[in-house]
Computed example of a mutant assay.
Amino acid sequence: MKAAIYTQYGSPDVLQLRDVDKPVPKDTEVLIRVHATSINDWDWGLLNGDAVNRLINGIFKPKKMNILGSDIAGRVEAVGKAVTCFKPGDDVYGDLAGRFGGFADYVCALQNQVAKMAIGMSFEQAAAIPQAGMLALQGLFDILPLKDGQKVLINGAGGGVGTFGIQFAKQFDVEVTGVDSTGKLELMRRIGFDHVIDYTQEDFTQSGREYDLIVDAKTNRSSFVYLRALKPSGVYATVGGRVPRLLQVALFGKPIQWLTGKQTRIVVLRANRDLAYINELFEAGKLTPVIDGPYTLNQLADAFRHFGRAEHQGKIVVTIPA
């Protein structure tokens, strides 16, 4: 089978399309013919080999995971003898949750790492959902459950988390502000943000406006900066970003709450937990993934370059045709 592999850390240029052995499912696994996948921050970190990901995947070169891709959508081709949830021919999607291997013709997944796709959902739409959809949903509801009348801000609103987040938030009568770069503002208005802010022109933490909840998909500034944009008892929730900033949130979250009454929290991803709910929203016409692309597997390096420039709108999806 074909797979995009990397044997050294670096730019997208290190990716190579090669023939590799087709995987064989273990007792609790399903073998999936991958039709689409998408790029996440973790893929980017592993490819570039930042300090944290080198500890996970090999200090000097990739050892454990040399095929990236965690969000996948495809058709079950075979199942292990202990699998009870799926059969060959089922269309499924999910987050491989650290196992990776999605940028290939075939991948094996544990049966609890995938769910059946919603009626009418394309493989491209399904591949866009798992990680960004879960982070958006859990960031909005797990720490400070939304209710009518609240004000929400999403930082990094034009990417995957933000474009899902606005759709989840608008299931309630809430006012949602999105922050991102100039080129993404039109999309953000179109998909329902009440207010949009161009971070190159305005610092929302200096505006005097306060929010009940800030969901941060960037986390590129100190968590202390965001406190002045929170209402009393407001919540700042980060769903990912630079490790030093995440450590700051983890270390100072409790002292900040004791001193100010405001919360700063890290959303710990619960992979695939809410796919059934997302299927319900999709089938009801209340959720539409925003797709950038799709690219093909042959264009994977270009897709990663696009991701690295942070110019993508919604999720960058890669198709793997039969």
Rank of each mutant, 00 (worst) to 15 (best):
V107S: 00
A104L: 04
M117V: 11
D105S: 10
G102K: 00
G101Q: 02
L96V: 02
A115G: 09
G89I: 11
D91M: 14
Q113R: 09
D90T: 13
N112C: 15
T84L: 13
A97H: 15
V114Y: 01
G89E: 12
G98F: 08
G94D: 07
F100D: 04
G89N: 07
L110N: 15
R99Y: 08
G98C: 09
F86M: 07
A115N: 14
A109Y: 01
P88S: 07
G98H: 13
G94F: 03
F86S: 07
D91L: 10
L110Y: 15
G101E: 08
A109H: 01
Q113V: 03
F86I: 09
K87E: 14
L110K: 11
D90H: 04
L110D: 11
A104I: 03
N112M: 11
T84D: 15
A104D: 11
C108S: 03
C108W: 00
N112F: 13
A97F: 15
C108E: 01
D91E: 11
F86E: 14
C108H: 02
G98Q: 10
A109L: 02
F86D: 13
D90I: 12
V83R: 06
P88L: 12
A97M: 10
T84W: 13
L96D: 09
D90E: 13
G101L: 00
F100E: 09
V83Y: 12
Y93A: 04
C108T: 14
C108N: 04
A97T: 06
N112I: 07
D95H: 08
V83N: 10
A104K: 01
K116R: 08
D90N: 14
A115R: 06
